[in-house]
Design a binder for these strands. Structure first.
Length: 676
DNA sequence: TAGCCTCGAGTTCA
DNA sequence: CTCGAGGCTA
C-alpha cells in the first residue's frame, strides 16, 4: 500500500467529521452536499481498496453495518437514574424544601438550580474509550440496557470520536473512559416525512415522534435507522475516568466543546422563584419548538451538593422532572355514534368517559370515516389514548392493546341512515358513506344551520338551538321559510323573549341584502364552498343566470370542472330547488354580483392568515385583502404571496418559512394596508 | 397522466 | 386543523 494512502484517508475523515459537526450539531454547514458526497466517495474508494486502513470511527462506518439477530445487553458503568416527577408549582417548591432540609439549610435560603428541556424521546448512553465511540446503549432498567451501537452511529449529531484538540487547548485531556448521556429524538418535520412514506407504502404509521424514534433505534437493521434522520441532545455524564466537574452547567459547556449537540435552552437559576418563572415561560413557548418536550428538568447545579444529597432507590434527590399538564390522556370508549351531516355524510364519533386533556374535559372525538376506524381499530369498550391535535381538536391517537378484554365490540357502518332509515351508499373510491334519503331530517336541519351561518346568510340570533325549535314547531321546512317568520311566532317559543325575537327578525331582514356569492354559498350545493360560490357569482351576476346555465357553461367558470358543473346543474334541476328559489324571490331576495378592485396592492396575490390575530377578526382581515384585490387562502404553498402570522402560529408558519414565503406580523400587515 | 395546489367538509370545547 | 378529492398544469 502506498504510504500516503492512510494519511489521505485520515485527512478525508477529519474533513467529513467537521462537516457533520457543523451541519448536525451547529446547524451551520460550511460545504455543499455535493462536496460532501465527493469526499465521502473518495474515502469509501480508499477503504474498499485497502480494507486494513478502516478505523471504527471512520465516517463510512455510520452506515452499512450488518443486520443483527438480536440486541445484546450492555451494562452501564454508572447506572442511568430515572427522575421523580413534579406535577405543578406546589410540588416543585416541595422538592426545593426537601433539598434544603436534606442539606440542613435554612428553608428561606437559596439553592442554585439549572433548568433544561425534558425531551420526549429515548434516553441513551454513549461510551467513549480514548475519545472513540466504543458503545451506545438504551437506558433499559437503568443498570443494563440494550447495545445499539450500530444504530447510534447512524445518528449524525453523535460524534464518532471526541477530537483531541477539543476542550481547553489540549491542556485538558479527554478522559480515557467517559459515558455521555442524552436523549435521541425526532424533529417534527422528519416525523411527518417518515409517516408519509409509511402511509404510501401501506405500513402502519407511528402515533408520535417518540414511538417513531424508539422504533427506529431498536431496529436490528442499522440501514433502516440510517434512513430516519434522528437527532441527539446531550445533557449529562455518567462514568468519567480522570476528570472532575464542579457544576452541571460546566458539564454542559464541556460536552459542547467536545462536539456534542447541547440544547441552548438552558437557564441557571439563583432561586426556586426564578425556576418557576422560567418554567412558566416555556408553557406556551414549547409549542413553537420543532420537536416535542414533555416538561423541564430541574437539577441542583453544584455537583458537591448533588453528591451530598445522593439518591433514593433509583432516583436522585438532586433533580426533578417538571411535567406540564399532559396533552395526552387515556380513557374508555363507551359508544361509537354515527352523525349525519348536511351532505348526508355519516361520521362515526367516539363517545368517551370524560377525561382532562391539557386543561379541558374531552368526551368525544371524530373518527372521520369507516376506514379510519378500521385503521386505528377502535372498538366500543376499548381504552384509548386521546390528545388535542393542534391544541384544540380532540383526536383518538391509538388503542391501548394491553387493556383489551375480548368483550370489545367492533364498529360496523350501518346500512340504513340512523336518522331517517334510508339506504346508505358508499360511492366507489370514496371514503365517506352517505345517506341517500331525500327528506332526511338530519340533512334538512344541517342545511338550515348552514344557510344561516357566518359566511353564508349570516343571520345572527338564529342558531342550531332555535332552528331545532322552529322545525319541531313546524314553522320552517326549508331555508326560505325563515323569511316568513314573525315576531309573534318566535315569542311563542320556549326560552324566547320579545327582545331576542325582535333581534332575530331584524337579522333575518338584514340578511336579504347579502351579496349573490353568499346566497349561492348558503344554498349548500355539493362541491360549492365559499370560493367557488364567489367565482360563480362573478361569472353569472344573477341567480337566474346561474340556475339556467348548462353544464358546459358552468364548466367554463375558473376552478369549476365536470364534477362541480354536474353537481350544480343537478341541484338546480330539482323541483325542490325551484320552489325554494321562488319563495326566496317572493320574500324580496334578488342579489347582484359584486365587483372588486383589480388595482389594489394585493391584486393577483394570495394571502394566508395563521395563528391568533389580536386586533382584527379573521373575517375583517380577509375582507381587507379582498378589498385590495387579493384572495385570502387557507393553505400555504409556493404560490402564496404573503403569510400573516399571529400568536401561536403553527405548521403553516413552519411551512412558509421552509418555502421561503414572505411572512409578517399582524402589526406589520396593518401598517402596510393602512399606513398612518 | 402524475403531481401539485386549492378548496370543501366535518369536527371540539369554553 | 386535517383529510380527501377536484381542477389545473407540466
Amino acid at each position: 500500500m502506498p504510504h500516503n494512502i492512510a494519511d489521505e484517508a485520515d485527512v478525508l475523515r477529519r474533513k467529513l467529521d467537521r462537516a457533520d459537526y457543523l451541519y448536525y450539531v451547529k446547524d451551520q454547514p460550511d460545504i455543499s452536499d455535493a462536496e460532501y458526497d465527493k469526499l465521502m466517495r473518495r474515502l469509501q474508494e480508499l477503504e474498499q481498496t485497502y480494507p486494513s486502513i478502516i478505523t471504527p470511527d471512520s465516517p463510512t462506518q455510520r452506515v452499512g453495518a450488518t443486520v443483527q439477530s438480536e440486541l445484546a445487553p450492555h451494562t452501564h458503568i454508572v447506572p442511568m437514574l430515572s427522575l421523580q416527577n413534579a406535577m405543578g408549582e406546589d410540588e416543585l417548591r416541595a422538592f426545593d424544601q426537601r433539598v434544603k432540609r436534606f442539606l440542613g439549610l435554612d428553608p428561606d435560603s437559596d439553592v442554585e438550580y439549572v433548568c433544561e428541556l425534558k425531551f420526549d424521546g429515548l434516553a441513551v448512553s454513549l461510551t467513549y474509550v480514548d475519545g472513540v465511540l466504543a458503545a451506545g446503549a438504551t437506558r433499559g432498567d437503568g443498570t443494563v440496557g440494550e447495545n445499539i451501537t450500530a444504530n447510534l452511529k447512524t445518528v449524525k449529531s453523535v460524534p464518532l470520536r471526541i477530537p483531541v484538540e477539543a476542550g481547553t487547548g489540549g491542556t485538558d485531556p479527554i478522559p480515557s473512559t467517559v459515558e455521555v448521556r442524552g436523549e435521541v429524538i425526532l424533529f417534527h418535520e422528519e416525523f411527518r416525512r417518515i409517516n408519509e412514506d409509511r402511509e404510501q407504502s401501506g405500513e402502519p404509521t407511528f402515533a408520535n415522534p417518540r414511538n417513531a424514534a424508539a422504533g427506529s433505534l431498536r431496529q436490528l437493521d442499522p440501514n433502516i435507522t440510517a434512513k430516519r434522520r434522528l437527532n441527539m441532545f446531550c445533557y449529562g455524564i455518567g462514568a468519567c475516568e480522570g476528570r472532575a466537574f464542579v457544576t452541571q452547567h460546566e458539564i454542559l459547556s464541556i460536552l459542547e466543546s467536545w462536539g456534542f449537540r447541547v440544547n441552548p435552552n438552558v437557564c441557571v437559576c439563583a432561586t426556586i422563584d426564578d425556576v418557576c418563572e422560567y418554567i412558566a415561560g416555556w408553557a406556551e413557548k414549547k409549542e413553537t419548538l420543532p420537536y416535542d418536550i414533555d416538561g423541564m428538568v430541574v437539577k441542583v447545579n453544584s455537583l458537591t451538593l448533588q453528591s451530598e444529597l445522593g439518591a433514593v432507590a433509583r432516583s436522585p434527590r438532586w433533580a426533578v422532572a417538571f411535567k406540564y399538564p399532559a396533552q395526552q390522556a387515556t380513557t374508555v370508549v363507551t359508544e361509537i355514534r354515527v352523525q349525519v351531516g348536511r351532505t348526508g355524510a355519516l361520521t362515526p364519533v367516539a363517545i368517551m368517559e370524560p377525561v382532562e386533556v391539557g386543561g379541558v374535559t374531552v368526551s368525544r372525538a371524530t373518527l372521520h370515516n369507516e376506514d379510519e376506524v378500521r385503521r386505528k381499530d377502535v372498538r366500543v369498550g376499548d381504552t384509548v389514548v386521546v390528545q388535542r391535535a393542534g391544541e384544540v381538536i380532540p383526536e383518538v391517537v391509538e388503542v391501548v392493546a394491553e387493556k383489551r378484554t375480548g368483550d370489545e365490540v367492533e364498529f360496523v357502518m350501518p346500512d340504513h341512515c340512523p336518522v331517517c332509515g334510508a339506504d346508505v351508499e358508499r360511492a366507489e373510491g370514496e371514503a365517506v358513506a352517505r345517506c341517500v334519503g331525500i327528506a332526511c331530517p338530519a340533512k334538512i336541519r344541517e342545511t338550515m344551520i348552514h344557510f344561516t351561518s357566518r359566511g353564508a346568510m349570516d343571520i345572527d340570533g338564529v342558531g342550531p338551538a332555535l332552528i331545532d325549535q322552529l322545525i319541531a314547531a313546524n314553522l320552517i321546512g326549508d331555508p326560505a321559510d325563515i323569511y316568513s317568520l314573525t315576531v309573534e311566532q318566535l315569542c311563542a317559543l320556549d326560552r324566547m323573549g320579545s327582545k331576542s325575537a325582535e333581534n332575530a327578525v331584524a337579522a333575518i331582514e338584514k340578511s336579504k341584502q347579502a351579496p349573490l356569492s353568499r346566497l349561492i354559498y348558503a344554498l349548500g350545493i355539493r362541491h360549492v364552498g365559499e370560493r367557488t360560490a364567489a367565482a360563480l357569482a362573478r361569472h353569472f351576476t344573477t341567480i337566474d343566470a346561474l340556475a339556467a346555465a348548462s353544464e358546459n357553461e358552468l364548466a367554463e367558470v375558473p376552478d369549476a370542472g365536470p364534477v362541480v358543473a354536474d353537481s350544480i346543474a343537478r341541484f338546480f334541476r330539482q323541483d325542490e330547488t325551484k320552489r325554494v328559489l321562488e319563495k326566496l324571490r317572493a320574500a324580496g331576495i334578488d342579489p347582484r354580483g359584486e365587483s372588486r378592485d383589480e388595482s389594489g396592492m394585493f391584486a393577483g396575490q394570495s394571502v394566508v392568515f395563521t395563528g391568533a390575530l389580536e386586533r382584527l377578526t379573521r373575517d375583517q382581515a380577509e375582507a381587507i385583502v379582498r378589498r385590495l384585490g387579493g384572495s385570502p387562502s387557507s393553505s400555504v404553498s409556493k404560490n402564496t404571496s404573503l403569510v400573516v402570522a399571529g400568536e401561536k402560529a403553527g405548521s403553516k408558519l413552519e411551512k412558509a418559512t421552509s418555502l421561503g414565503v414572505k411572512v409578517m406580523s399582524e402589526g406589520e400587515f396593518l401598517e402596510m394596508v393602512d399606513p398612518r
